[in-house]
């Protein structure tokens, strides 16, 4: 089954053709990052406009890379939430138009489930599975008792981890997006600054606003020049440490066969290192991290999960609408 997947939930216009949820026939992503960098964040109206500019080119490129005609596509998959409503609309109209014109099924996808099932490109997934989802909009521990069955064990009570990185980067006068910059600086940093411990009510929940405030205080209080490398190190160790702490707790509490990392922040080098390190502590649990190309938003992952969703009977009609605050569990 060849699925043409479309993803426009934020600032990437992406189309991919995926065969049987596993084989990437094409994966085209047109990023707007350079435009939004100038504003220090994504401007929704600008993002929607650029999606309209790019959509036909990206579609054509995805089909030609896969050496396919439109009528050889078996189904169309679309991210219908969560995300920016204006951006979601462009992809949604595209997918609905194509599904109608070709009279093929339309498969609605929750963006985060795409990130989780991106790991399907790396290895066969087994259940029960635990996923640590880390991105600019999400930070959560998701338990999948069986295939395509999602239960959120805990989530962030304030900022998402990616958001926290962006905010800290801004406070430190670094560029947007904050994740890669802080990750790079932290590599040459040392333990020097002390940041407070994080507390949450639900043991599986996360919180990052306290860390952000602590960094802000340090920046404001400091009379001599702050050591950026050391501050980045302190923040990264604290933030990533919080993720690992809650992950371990979940792995100790639930019968997990497979643990996967998911989302944009899965590209963080320190987090990848620590997650792979879990192997020694939990030798019976299979551990998978997504390939770097699949951490940023793309449509390949949407095609991967759409195949699973379709097997589970998920299909939408042409009245499908964008849902910026869509839930999946």
């Amino acid at each position: 089954m060849r699925i043409c997947a479309i993803e426009t939930s934020c600032d990437e216009t992406a189309v991919a053709i995926i065969e049987d949820g596993k084989t990437v026939l094409s994966n085209v992503v047109s990023s707007q990052i350079n435009v939004h960098q100038a504003f220090g964040g994504v401007i929704p109206e600008v993002a929607s406009r650029i999606h309209v500019e790019n959509i036909s080119l990206v579609l054509k490129e995805a089909l030609s890379e896969a050496k396919m005609n439109l009528d050889e596509v078996d189904a169309f998959a679309i991210t219908h939430g969560p995300g920016l409503v204006g951006s979601l609309h462009v992809g949604l109209i595209t997918a609905k138009t194509l599904a109608w014109y070709t009279q093929k099924p339309l498969i609605p996808v929750h963006h985060i489930t795409g990130h989780i099932y991106a790991n399907n490109f790396v290895s066969e997934l087994s259940y029960p599975m635990l996923a640590l989802v880390v991105s600019g909009g999400h930070t959560e521990l998701v338990y999948l008792k069986e295939e395509f069955n999602f239960e959120i064990l805990g989530s962030t009570q304030d900022d998402a981890i990616g958001e926290a990185y962006d905010k800290v980067a801004r406070v430190m006068g670094l560029s947007y997006p904050g994740g890669p910059v802080i990750d790079r600086l932290a590599k040459s940093g040392e333990a020097h600054y002390k940041l407070p411990k994080i507390k949450t009510q639900n043991p599986f929940d996360f919180s990052f606003s306290g860390l952000k405030s602590a960094v802000l205080q340090l920046v404001h209080k400091q009379t001599e020049d702050l050591n950026h490398e050391d501050l980045a190190y302190a923040f990264q160790e604290a933030a990533v440490g919080e993720l690992m702490l809650k992950t371990r707790l979940a792995l100790d509490t639930y019968p997990v066969k497979h643990f996967v990392l998911a989302g944009g922040v899965a590209a963080n080098s320190r987090l990848r290192e620590l997650v792979l390190g879990l192997n020694e502590e939990y030798p019976d649990i299979q551990i998978t991290i997504p390939p770097l190309w699949c951490c940023t938003d793309n449509a390949a992952m949407i095609g991967a999960v759409a195949y699973i969703a379709y097997k589970h009977g998920v299909q939408a009609d042409l009245s499908l609408s964008a849902n910026p605050g869509l839930d999946y569990a």
Partner: peptide, 30 residues
Amino acid sequence: LEAIVVTDGPGSYTGLRIGLTIAKVLGSLA
């Protein structure tokens, strides 16, 4: 379907993008 005639503006930004996206997708692929 052989042709589409679509209003391209002015108007509501969100609204305009709907008609134009349909036209762009079918115009380029079909």
